[in-house]
């Protein structure tokens, strides 16, 4: 492996982290009642899928799973940059009075989470929103913190943390690029 490319977690490590997050979510919320998982497209949606699967293994029932695309809620849309393609938001259930577990792969500035929360509010008034992330790499620019973290990774702003997915959208490793 080259010096500018460090593997932080492998597939097994990621799976163990997601299993622990699933247990923590259930412990904090005392079971699956009223819980819905919403993943942020695209990496967060795959991670949410993994957590949902662990929860259903532990509790023996599926939890509602949705996907949110935050492109239309970004705070840098007004510049003259070409606008990105917009992904589909799929929340086929009401969020009214639900405990929403918002899921992303990497937590960085917090701007994506701010945008995602604004999007969720347009789908009703949840009882609470809790944040689960696989990696927290620091450098927040907004007052946002995660409730469930797979791994805290101190980074410099010049570095880049990426979760790599395989063709079936399963996370296979987390890499730090310098």
């Amino acid at each position: 492996m080259a010096d500018d490319h460090t593997v932080l977690m492998d597939g097994e490590g990621i799976k163990r982290a997601l299993t622990r997050i699933a247990h923590e979510v259930l412990e904090r919320n005392k079971g699956v009642a009223d819980i819905v998982l919403i993943g942020i497209r695209s990496g967060g949606a795959f991670i949410a899928d993994g957590i949902a699967r662990q929860i259903s293994i532990i509790e023996g029932g599926a939890v509602p799973l949705g996907t949110v695309d935050i492109t239309l809620y970004r705070d840098d849309c007004s510049g003259q940059l070409p606008h990105q393609a917009v992904g589909i938001t799929e929340i086929p259930f009401s969020l009214e009075a639900k405990k929403v577990i918002l899921v992303d792969d990497v937590l960085y500035t917090g701007r994506t989470i701010r945008a995602a929360m604004d999007a969720l509010m347009d789908f009703g008034r949840p009882q609470s929103i809790q944040l689960a992330v696989l990696i927290d790499r620091g450098h927040r620019e907004l007052p946002i913190r995660a409730d469930f973290v797979g791994r805290n990774v101190p980074t410099s702003q010049k570095e880049n943390v990426q979760v790599i997915f395989d063709g079936l959208n399963q996370p296979i490793e987390v890499v730090l690029e310098k």
Binding site: L72, Y73, R74, C77, S78, D118, D122, F123, G124
Partner: peptide
């Protein structure tokens, strides 16, 4: 949606 609005072109 029930609330048919996004803030994109505010």
């Amino acid at each position: 949606r029930d609330i048919k609005k996004v803030p994109t072109l505010r």
